[in-house]
Design a protein around this nucleic acid. Sequence first.
DNA 1: ATTAATTTTCAGTAATTACTGAAAATTCGG
DNA 2: CCGAATTTTCAGTAATTACTGAAAATTAAT
Lengths: 168, 168
Amino acid sequence: MKLSEAKQQFISTWGAMGTHWGINRTMAQVHALLMISPDPLTQDDVMAQLNISRGNVNMNIRDLIDWGLVDRVLIQGERKEYFTAEKDIWKVARQIIKERKKRELDPMMKLMDQLSKVDGDKKDKEVKTFLDTISGIKKFGAHADSMLDVVVKSDENWFISTALKLFK
Amino acid sequence: MKLSEAKQQFISTWGAMGTHWGINRTMAQVHALLMISPDPLTQDDVMAQLNISRGNVNMNIRDLIDWGLVDRVLIQGERKEYFTAEKDIWKVARQIIKERKKRELDPMMKLMDQLSKVDGDKKDKEVKTFLDTISGIKKFGAHADSMLDVVVKSDENWFISTALKLFK
DNA sequence: ATTAATTTTCAGTAATTACTGAAAATTCGG
DNA sequence: CCGAATTTTCAGTAATTACTGAAAATTAAT
């Protein structure tokens, strides 16, 4: 398989995967392109390689920067901005976990705390089932939170050795 | 807060969360409704409570069954089908991990194996960066796979105690 | 300060995804 | 086997989400 073809397939699959992960296709494609590009790219480079408009590139790069997955790079003597993506996949994964925890898990747990204060008699089957569900989610969330914190703070070696140990 | 209000908020938030997880809003809402309902519901119950059409309910329940999150229940002497969702959130989480591993991680790893066979000189910066990215993803995927297998096979107690141990 | 290069915004539009509702298929009691 | 109850399908449509391109804003060289 030729490099150009392989690149194309990687970008397209990474993009499709993004849609299963709550990220839009194009954002994931831009990320894929930057990951496999040895040198930083400009907005025009991305426009050309993915065949998308300037506005689209601009918005998606901004989102990627918000996610902490892409950085602006200043190139000496150049007026244009350049962009590069973190190439260490372990760092990428940790960054994504960190952000999703903040954006999704934390607010969900706050809501569960609210909902566990619902009025009503625990003898009522409706109330009991509701509270049991909420309480299960709270417990689960607390443990998931702890585990994810460990992963986020860990370095690659820790993760490898733990994974092996657990797997026996 | 009244139960009806709390239920409504739970369903709506669980639905919104679904969209961040590659699941459509309605499917997550149906799942939420079934989780907090003490007894199995019919398609008509779901239609009434969520204000959605019969076709929509039918399709989403079928998907939930495919995901292993909802079961058909036969009620003695009733012609209609009833549906219920797994109430143990640990089992729900394990089931989701198992399915996503099968649907997303496994095919992604297969593709990486393909792509690592790309032609070209490893001295070429373009080729090298591409292969390094692929190889990083392969290594990461293998470890994630192991860890997730452990979680899927574990029971609740194992997960709790491990989480605590890791967190120190 | 002027102006050219570059980035950002966003109204309008395109593309995608989800939903409805009625018809077709299936199931099951009699 | 017939017919009523129920489930399933899917063409048409609605709702949502993503993208374009041009205008506005910003930046920086002279």
